[in-house]
Write a protein that binds this DNA or RNA. Structure first.
Length: 760
DNA sequence: GGGTGTCCGGGATTG
DNA sequence: CCGGACACCC
């Protein structure tokens, strides 16, 4: 016990040892949040306040869940397999498998990832003769997902115009089709679990009695449905609700665009009668100048719960800022600085280059490639998303649930077996006519089409038959052979990588089986009969629990298939090598590095132009900047550029407002700092940057100046709109008009002979 | 069915 | 400018 709690600072200690009531922990960046969470669990168990089975710990990412498990097993000598620690989706999957009948799902229901969901919707629109110009699949998908994220079924969504009424109708059709095929999307996992627990009182009370301590990581990222889910699970408002230990940071809320609602933090305080609010403000990550920059920047936001990070580390190096003349020059500067750091002994993997949007990585990658510096780009395609893997998975899905039409369509003619569009049309007609799945409709198709289709069905049947008693990895091997996927890629020119990936899939199955405990002599639960044994009798109030171990509630194949959907796996690009780390600011959340470059700090890019209409948008961008800054331990570099190629056009942006919100005493400008206009110094960097001029000329803009005396790229000051940049000039002489980017005020078209403009 | 050409649109992302 | 979606051709 002494051991468990020593080394905690007073705030952390207070949080870990809070009484069994709901509490909100405001955990600043780098304040030891995961440590507090895991130590809290260990302390609760060690002091006998709860058994491991009474703990429910929820995270958003698999990575966070794994991290928690690892650190917990280092703290406590217990088997963590029996504990309910996982993502919202993973935990819901487990509950739905165990109680599938009550939830109205087949035991082998399958999970659509977002790609599957999109093709599912396209198919739905086509089958119902909907014009996908008027109702774009992506829009419908967003509509459905946001409704589900708010806990709403189609019948509950309010629609006030024809378009929305149609969307609601399509949402309803979508759900019905999912139900027929035995598939669920990600949001459905949560909504279905929520509905299951809402209407099934014995089940609800069983889990409420079981989970006396619920811990939630990254609470600021919860959406409305997740919050309702937690309320239900905890029995909030009841006599003896569970103690919910919510850890979050409102300043790091950067996912409003996908439904996260920071308001859940104050709702939580209110609705869970939170008496204990603890702020973790001691930062163990960043040097002083970096932390001061973050603090001063975020103070510009209005809606905050209020928090100020402090550090015992000294000031450290100042934050370095560079204005480049072009995006190419910016990239080269970054590389020079990174080389210096490496020369001084930094590991490449301890240097991160961050950007607001993926498109910005190109120029940087090009420069790194030319310089021969190894780098790794985050966020690429992941293992289970690769086409060949999805094909193999589709065969396995059909064996486990033949009514999954998505899987059927993916592989019915891949590798090619002479089942073309015409045959499929007949099959789809038959399926629609009888209201059954494609697989089930095969016997209704006659002729040549019918016999090729019947051959395909026989292929799936025999794969299932031949593998029914095989361990999972061997099952995968057999499927790869029988489906002729392997031979198909052997004859393909560039199939070598794909074959390697397919072999990796067998490894993945082997690994999965050993990690999840399927390799031991688990009771064979492949048939529906044994699963039924787990279910409560209809009139019984005894609930058989969804034990935490997977083998108790699903077959190895079903489990592996949900694993493939719920954990898409790493993107394996250049993994393992000591390489510079390139990623968006969003994907940097939760990570930390010795040195961090934040690039493209320009109005329109960061803050992004789509966010600048509303104050709340800019505040989220500012939080994003806050996240970016607080990734750095020792060194922080900020850069922006006067010109930038975007969408095939040269853009001229003003420097980001965020740069002007940072504290001067923590900064070191490596390029001359041009004061904002209201400070007096009006000299433009353009006048002192011959390189920029040369660059511009090289880009074919030879006509730098015209008779009207203005040129593209000129910084100007306008009485009403303030500081701006001339982006384009049309016409000439006295009739010339200029497109001027005024940042917050947007793009204006002004007549140069009329508008009162000063050069700055 | 796969390969090539044309058109369009382009913010971030986990499960 | 670049990638995805789709039409068209062999």
């Amino acid at each position: 016990m002494q051991n468990l709690l020593h080394n905690l600072n007073p705030e952390q200690l207070a949080a870990v040892t809070l009484p069994s009531q709901s509490a909100l922990i405001l955990a600043g960046a780098g304040s030891g949040k995961t440590r507090v969470l895991t130590t809290r669990i260990a302390w609760l168990i060690q002091t006998g306040q709860v058994s491991p089975g009474g703990i429910l710990a929820v995270t958003f990412t698999n990575k966070a869940a794994k991290e928690m498990l690892t650190r917990l097993s280092a703290l406590l000598p217990i088997n963590t397999r029996g504990m309910w620690i996982g993502t919202f989706h993973g935990l819901c999957n487990r509950l739905l498998r165990a109680h599938h009948r009550d939830a109205g799902l087949p035991q082998t229901f399958q999970i659509l990832d977002s790609g599957d969901q999109l093709s599912f919707i396209k198919r739905l629109l086509k089958a119902n003769n909907i014009d996908d110009e008027k109702f774009p699949p992506r829009t419908l998908m967003y509509f459905i997902n946001s409704a589900k994220d708010q806990g709403l079924r189609a019948a509950q969504v309010e629609a006030h115009d024809d378009f929305n009424r149609k969307m609601v109708a399509l949402y309803d059709l979508y759900d019905a089709q999912c139900q027929r095929e035995g598939v669920v999307d990600f949001a459905e996992l949560l909504l279905r679990t929520y509905e299951l627990l809402s209407r099934n009182q014995p089940l609800r009370e069983h889990y409420q009695a079981r989970f006396r301590h619920i811990l939630v990581d990254e609470f600021q990222d919860t959406n409305d449905l997740q919050y309702q889910w937690l309320k239900l699970m905890a029995g909030a408002g009841k006599q003896e609700p569970a103690a919910v230990f919510a850890v979050g940071d409102d300043d790091q809320s950067i996912y409003a665009f996908r439904g996260a609602n920071v308001g859940n933090m104050s709702a939580f305080e209110r609705e869970f009668q939170v008496r204990n609010l603890i702020k973790l403000e001691q930062n163990y990550r960043s040097h002083g100048h970096i932390l001061d920059s973050a603090n001063v920047l975020i103070a510009n936001n209005s809606k905050r719960l209020g928090k100020n990070l402090r550090t015992d580390a000294g000031h450290g190096e100042p934050v370095r800022i560079m204005e480049a003349s072009s995006d190419i020059q910016e990239a080269n500067w970054i590389i020079d600085e990174a080389k210096n750091l490496i020369r001084e002994g930094s590991l490449r993997s301890e240097i991160a280059i961050l950007y607001r949007s993926n498109a910005q990585s190109r120029v940087i990658e090009h420069a790194l490639f030319t310089a021969g510096i190894p780098y790794r780009v985050y966020g690429g395609q992941r293992f289970f998303e690769r086409a060949e893997i999805k094909h193999a998975i589709a065969y396995l899905q059909l064996m486990d649930n033949p009514h999954n039409d998505s899987a059927f369509l993916r592989v019915v003619n891949f590798p090619a077996r002479g089942i073309g569009a015409r045959s499929m049309e007949q099959l789809q007609d038959a399926a629609r006519q009888h209201g059954i799945s494609l697989y089930a409709a095969v016997p209704h198709v006659g002729g040549k089409a019918g016999s090729s289709l019947a051959n395909f069905v026989r292929l799936i049947e025999s794969a299932r038959f031949e593998t029914q008693n095989l361990p999972l990895p061997e099952m995968v091997q057999v499927v790869l052979d029988l489906s002729t996927l392997l031979t198909h890629y052997q004859t393909e020119k560039e199939g070598a990588d794909r074959i390697e990936n397919l072999e990796q899939l067998i490894n993945a199955a082997t690994l999965f089986v050993s990690e999840e405990g399927f390799s031991r002599e688990a009771p064979a639960l492949t048939g529906p009969a044994s699963a039924a044994a787990l279910l409560p009798a209809a009139d019984s109030v005894t609930v058989i629990d969804a034990d935490a171990a997977l083998p108790a509630v699903m077959s190895p194949l079903s489990a592996f298939l949900s694993h493939a959907s719920l954990e898409a796996g790493d993107n394996q690009a250049q993994a393992g090598q000591d390489a510079l780390q390139l990623m968006t600011v969003h994907s940097a959340k939760g990570l930390e590095f010795d040195a961090v470059f934040i690039t493209g700090l320009e109005e329109g890019l960061f803050p992004h132009e789509n966010s600048m209409q509303e104050a709340s948008g800019v505040e989220e961008e500012r939080r994003l900047m806050y996240v970016a800054i607080t990734r750095a331990r020792q060194r922080l570099y900020l850069s922006f550029s006067q010109t930038r190629m975007l969408h095939g056009q040269t853009r001229y942006n003003m420097r980001s407002r965020f740069l002007d919100e940072l504290p001067d005493e923590s900064l070191k400008w490596l390029s001359p700092k041009i004061q904002p206009s209201w400070f007096g110094n009006k000299k433009s960097a353009w006048d002192e940057a011959p390189a920029a001029e040369a660059n511009r000329l090289a880009q074919g803009m030879s006509k730098a100046q015209d008779s009207h005396g203005w040129r593209i790229g000129q910084n100007v000051l306008h009485a009403k709109f303030g500081e701006g940049v001339i982006v384009n000039i049309e016409g000439s002489g006295s009739s010339a008009r200029a497109h001027i980017n005024f940042g917050q005020f947007g793009m204006k078209l002004l007549d140069l002979s009329i508008a009162k403009l000063d050069k700055i």
